[in-house]
């Protein structure tokens, strides 16, 4: 899986690349419009992450060029501008998702994964982690082959964890993933806790191992280690 990160802020580009590389993606970066333009002509990518404001050009143009060259490439826009017009325009010219800065790396990662899943397999793929199997199309979860009934939020939570295996997810990022930006955080952190508690209980009931760990009180980690 090849991912191109078009972002002029070097530090941010580096963080994204690091994070994505750990997830097994092959990441390349472009910090200017020209560099990005060159790269999409030379190579094929599965997914391109584009910042809209670049020092020497407009991110929209890159997306337009990209869509002409290879329409199957997934596009995620990351922008400091939280404007509806930009979002609509992005969708119109063929981008798949829009994230407003500042965003969580885990959230970006989850979106890239789900995007690639949709693009490559039309969603007809199961997500497996040990004894847990998730069928994203039917939104069904099986543990040890047994159907496990999860609430909508618990399902979203599980999927978010499965997209970020062995990574510490902050409580805030989980809350924002589940409820969006608009919820008051004091309440949402409490609710995150109760959802995690329920999810863990339901997975354990079906004989799953306990993969959920609280980390330093700052967040949670899903994984073997």
């Amino acid at each position: 899986m090849k991912v191109l990160v078009v972002e002029d802020e070097k530090g941010l580009a580096e963080s994204i690349t690091d994070y994505m590389s750990k997830e097994g993606y092959l990441c390349e970066t472009a910090s200017t419009f020209r560099e990005a333009d060159e790269r999409i002509f030379l190579y094929n990518y599965d997914c391109v992450i584009v910042d809209l404001t670049l020092p020497d050009g407009d991110g929209f143009q890159i997306i337009q060029t990209l869509k002409k060259l290879l329409a199957t490439t997934g596009v995620i826009i990351i922008s400091a501008r939280n404007s509806l017009e930009d979002k609509i325009r992005g969708l119109e010219i063929g981008s798949d998702d829009y994230l407003t800065k500042p965003f969580h790396l885990s959230e970006l990662n989850a979106r890239v994964k789900s995007l690639i899943r949709r693009r490559n397999f039309g969603g007809h793929t199961e997500i497996r982690f040990k004894e847990i199997v998730v069928n994203p199309l039917a939104r069904k979860v099986y543990v040890n082959g047994q159907l496990t009934v999860l609430s909508r939020k618990e399902y979203d939570l599980l999927l978010y964890f499965l997209s970020n295996i062995d990574v510490v997810l902050t409580k805030v990022s989980i809350a924002e993933h589940l409820w969006g930006d608009n919820i008051d955080s004091a309440d949402s952190l409490d609710m995150v806790y109760s959802h995690i508690k329920n999810l863990r209980r339901k997975l354990l009931e079906k004989g799953g191992s306990d993969y959920l760990r609280s980390v330093y009180g700052i967040g949670y980690k899903f994984g073997e280690s």
């Binding site: 802020e9 530090g11 941010l12 963080s15 994204i16 690091d18 994070y19 990351i78 400091a80 501008r81 407003t100 800065k101 500042p102 965003f103 969580h104 790396l105 885990s106 990574v167 510490v168 902050t170 990022s173 980390v215 330093y216 700052i218 967040g219």
Partner: peptide
């Protein structure tokens, strides 16, 4: 406000990496 968003994104990203 716009200019502040990018450094904030950077801080967030680095903190997220740090806690790993």
């Amino acid at each position: 406000s716009h200019e502040i968003q990018t450094p904030l994104a950077l801080i967030n990203a680095k903190v997220e990496q740090l806690i790993q």
